[in-house]
Amino acid sequence: MATATDRAVRPTGTDGERGERRRRSGLDRAYYWMVVPAFILFFIFHTLPVLQGVFFSLTDSPGYGSWNFVGLSNYAALFGDDRVRSTYLFTFQFALVATVLVNIIALSVAVGLNGKIKFKNTLRGVYFIPNVLALIVVGYVFQYLFNQSLPAIASSLGIERLSTSILTDPSLAWIGIVVMTVWQAVAFNIIIYIAGLQTVPIELYEAASIDGASPWTRFWHITMPMIWAFFTINMVLSLKNFLQVFDQVIAMTGGGPGTSTETIAVLIYRGGFQGGEYGYQIANAVIFMIVIMVFAVVQLRVLRREEVSA
């Protein structure tokens, strides 16, 4: 008969249970060893700079030297700044146009590539090439095309309206930036849409064809509902990226002619790092960050509601 001392020192549970506890303990330690360093790095290189930026947005710092605490005066001044309002308006218009065009073109190409065509895999690779090119390099290439090649071709064809670069026209310069941005950005969206189209069961299309549904009907009542989650991803990412447009503008127009193509990111860069308005433009960046977050949340809620109803 076991004594009380024997029961006190005897390990509880079966060998399998003790092994399971040891395995779980090892997994817990491995989990913390992976998560804690990542959290520390994220805090140091992301969260901490954001908090520092929010603090400096409450100062009149020029980006160097001494500074004074000014509270919310930077934020109040932003709402009365005509240049800030015009850059926000231009950026929103640009992002809306580019988002719509990119998703229309990408979805059209993806549907075509998903069909029965020759060299389908090769074409997928070709269409993805623009996405791996540096934006600043592509921007300078398109700048040369719009400043040199296109005017020369238009002059030889007698097209007077295009015989001069559209990048020098305040009312047309944004079109050149949109063309370059759409050409470069559409590649990534095509890949996302192709991945979504491959999840649609072919039996649905066969059944719809037997019922006499037209291609347009099959697209709206089968394809779109089935890939709506992928459509949501592309719409949110596209709008977010285009609201932050910077490289394209710097490479092609520099924000000109004048300030006609100046975006929020360009204004923050110029004013904060070149114009001695570091604290003021940091406040602008904080507001811009909040705006992007609000747009993303609203987009996700609206589009996901449509996804559920579809």
Rank of each mutant, 00 (worst) to 15 (best):
M1I: 02
A8C: 06
A8V: 10
P11K: 14
E17T: 06
R23P: 10
Y32M: 13
F43Q: 07
H46V: 15
L51D: 11
L58P: 15
G63H: 02
S66A: 14
V70L: 10
A76D: 02
D81P: 00
V100P: 04
A110F: 03
V111C: 11
G125Q: 12
V126P: 13
V126R: 06
F128Q: 02
L133S: 09
V137C: 09
A152W: 12
I153F: 08
S155F: 00
L157K: 02
G158K: 05
S163H: 02
T164F: 12
L167D: 10
L167H: 06
D169A: 07
P170W: 05
I175E: 05
I177K: 06
V178M: 09
M180D: 02
W183A: 06
I194K: 00
Q198R: 03
E203K: 00
Y205P: 03
Y205A: 03
G212W: 14
G212H: 13
R218D: 11
F219Y: 12
T223W: 09
F230Y: 12
L239I: 15
Q244R: 13
Q248I: 05
A251M: 02
A251W: 04
G254I: 01
G255H: 03
G256R: 02
T259Q: 09
T259R: 10
T261V: 07
A265Y: 06
Q281M: 12
I282T: 05
A285I: 04
V294Y: 13
V298W: 09
V298G: 08
L303A: 08
E307F: 00
